[in-house]
Design a protein around this nucleic acid. Structure first.
Length: 627
RNA sequence: GGGGCCGUAGCUCAGUCGGUUAGAGUGCCGGACUGUCACUCCGGAGGUCGCGGGUUCGAGUCCCGUCGGCCCCGCCA
């Protein structure tokens, strides 16, 4: 996909599109002065527009004296129109796509001037530091002129365009849903919008079009999509903005396989269109439980393997107090074999302690296998039989390192501890170690595009404060077929579920038909097969502690819709911002969002949020609390 | 809500143990320069050391508070 800009009233061709083939022809260009070089009698300037840069040369041989004098007065970011002839350069600049030619100027018109002292520059040398990000956000229109940043938005546009093309080709209809909607009781904090007409009542901005897209399925549209803005009033991160964009889609008469096929096809097409890269489909699948056990995370980066190995039963028998202490407890000994890791220095192995601690472990234990056997913290504790079993299970070869952590693992046993809390496992430590070691040992294959589906996410999370179940995905997620019986058994009768039954369902655990798409260790999409049966939906609400009356108040319109013939349906939502960020190789969402918010959800450019006049508040029936 | 880092010229940064007139690069202004491309060379201007308070004979530097930015934990169904 390439986009070309056309000739306009101000130009015959975009400056950045000039090439050798244009040599000899007259041209009129319009754009910004990127940089100028005044050599006295000669002046060069680099003219920039969206298409790129081209050199314009002012020389007494072809430039009238008054034009040359005017050219000497030009400064960076003045907007000009220049006229002349495209000619081959005396010396080619290989760093510029237009570097074989220049425009020999015969005419110059200054359209607008930029103030001499710019708050931030547009033009930077390769090794020059960019200004502080708050300044770049304050003067966003200047920062956005930078070719690097412009490229990101071209990438983002291509991604969105590719997605629309693909989904349209698959029969999806683009349908818009409301931005003023109803607050949602579960999940993230809503942005609220006060109603002027209805005193004391509020709209919410949508966290996602979830309910609407399900209603569209009930309405018979069969396949819907929308590149939808979603808003959540939660704290920010480098990869999280309060408003973000999802490729939201829903399909009727489908199961997981249909959804996966569309999602994979969409991503493969997108990667081909934008990067020219072929992605293998179908994506590999892995259940949530598998992912957690094998990689310590529900979004494993499969550009490298480094699986987590359980060596509890083997090492419990060794002469090592910490290992022995796991006997008869739920504690596990798990670790990672690092090929070639034996060459890590003392300093590097020491560093592993901090990495493991970051993940909640007490520390990390390691052994190296050298030519003459094991060395390291627990090397001497293994007798011959234990050693052989250890080497057999881990596959530890000469030159390898094995790093282990000891403690509880969630994936070994779901449940709650005595205080009704969700116990934290050392999966996080394994995950930290795995990613740290891969980076450190250079095991990440940067050329890989490692997609996968993670399936069978838990249906419920536990809210220890309220002592009740909450939806892990959302309350409309279909339970796993094998777990539906347990759900029905626990939700007999009219009322909400008992605390014991709730705990039992959590501990079981109840699995769902929710899934994520993961790319190189990033969560790119999530979705689920939805509930379309009113009775099953009621059971879910009961288990969430939501009674009949409450359900009607909160989700009445959806439940009502389900009473009149709802098709089986499922869908997904991909994060467009994150996709654009990764395609552009950016490290922050702010690099692919034109006007992003800061960490504290402020817009430095336009200065939102802001206090409003008291009269405006009065109209909305709102009074702010004093100190 | 919590932890970490940062705030000095338009911009990027240095500033030693608390001590003379707060420096550099770049940009800006003036001058020179006929093939540059981060042009080069010469000269000049440019400072609320984020803000408020405190300690001190003396604070960019130490202490307290506060504002703003970035990264992370909690949170984000």
């Amino acid at each position: 996909m390439t986009e070309t800009l056309s000739a306009t009233a101000y130009r015959t061709i975009p400056a950045g599109e000039l090439r050798a083939e244009h040599a000899g022809s007259p041209a009129r260009l319009a754009g910004w002065v990127h940089r100028s070089r005044d050599l006295g009698a000669l002046v060069f300037l680099d003219l920039r527009d969206r298409a790129g840069l081209v050199q314009v040369s002012f020389d007494p041989t072809w430039t009238p004296a008054d034009v040359l004098a005017a050219a000497r007065e030009l400064r960076a970011e003045d907007v000009v129109q220049v006229e002349g002839t495209v000619e081959r350069r005396i010396k080619v600049n290989p760093n510029l796509p237009s570097g074989e030619v220049e425009l020999r100027a015969t005419g110059l018109r200054v359209l607008t001037r930029a103030e001499a002292t710019l708050p931030i520059q547009v033009d930077y040398a390769a090794d020059e530091e960019l200004p502080a990000e708050d300044l770049r956000l304050r003067y966003r229109y200047l920062d956005l002129r930078r070719p690097e940043l412009q490229r990101n938005f071209v990438t983002r546009h291509r991604a969105a365009h590719s997605v629309r093309n693909f989904l349209s080709g698959e029969g999806f209809l683009e349908i818009e849903t409301p931005v003023l909607t109803k607050p949602t009781p579960e999940g993230a904090r809503d942005f609220l919008v006060p109603s002027r007409v209805h005193r004391g009542e509020f709209y919410a901005l949508p966290q996602s079009p979830q309910l609407y897209k399900q209603l569209l399925m009930v309405s018979g549209f069969d396949r819907y999509y929308q590149i939808a803005r979603c808003l959540r009033d939660e704290d920010l991160r480098a990869d999280r903005q309060p408003e973000f964009t999802q490729i939201d889609a829903e399909m009727s008469f489908v199961d997981e396989e249909d959804v996966f096929r569309v999602g994979e096809g969409m991503m493969a097409t997108l990667w081909r269109d934008v990067l020219g890269v072929e992605i293998e489909t179908p994506f590999p699948r892995m259940t949530y439980v598998e992912a957690l056990a094998r990689y310590g995370t529900d979004k494993p980066d499969l550009r490298f393997d480094l699986p987590v190995v359980d060596v509890t039963e083997i090492l419990q028998r060794s002469e090592f107090r910490l290992f022995q202490s796991t006997m008869g407890t739920a504690q596990r000994i798990r670790g990672i074999r690092v090929p070639g890791g034996a060459r890590m220095s003392r300093r590097e192995t020491d560093e592993l302690q901090d990495v493991a601690k970051r993940g909640g472990a007490g520390g990390a234990l390691w052994v190296k296998r050298g030519e003459d056997g094991l060395s390291g913290q627990f090397a001497k504790a293994l007798d011959e039989a234990t050693l052989n079993a250890f080497l057999g299970v881990t596959g530890l070869e000469v030159g390898d390192l094995f790093v282990a952590v000891v403690g509880p693992f969630r994936s070994a046993r779901m449940g709650l501890d005595e205080d009704g809390r969700v116990p934290t496992g050392l999966e996080a430590a394994a995950d930290e170690l795995r990613r740290h070691l891969a980076r450190k040992m250079n095991l990440v294959d940067e050329s890989k595009h490692a997609w996968l589906w993670v399936t069978e996410f838990p249906l419920f999370d536990w809210d220890p404060e309220a002592g009740r179940l909450v939806s892990a995905h959302h309350p409309f997620t279909m339970p796993h077929l094998d777990d539906v019986l347990a759900l029905f058994a626990a939700t007999e009768g009219e009322g909400t579920i008992s605390a014991d039954d709730a705990r039992r369902l959590y501990t079981l655990p109840m699995r769902s038909r929710a899934y994520d798409a993961v790319y190189n260790g990033n969560e790119m999409a999530s979705g689920s097969v939805r509930i379309h049966d009113p009775e099953l939906q009621r059971r879910i609400f009961r288990s969430l502690g939501i009674g009949e009356q409450e359900a009607r108040t909160k989700f009445g319109f959806l439940l009502e819709a389900f009473r009149y013939g709802a098709p089986p349906h499922a869908g997904f939502a991909f994060g467009l911002d994150r996709i654009a960020m990764l395609l552009a190789r950016a490290t922050s969402l702010r690099e692919v969002i034109a006007f992003p918010k800061t960490n504290s959800a402020r817009a430095l450019f336009e200065g939102a949020p802001t206090p409003v006049a008291s009269g405006d508040l009065r109209d909305l029936h709102i009074r702010t609390l004093g100190e």
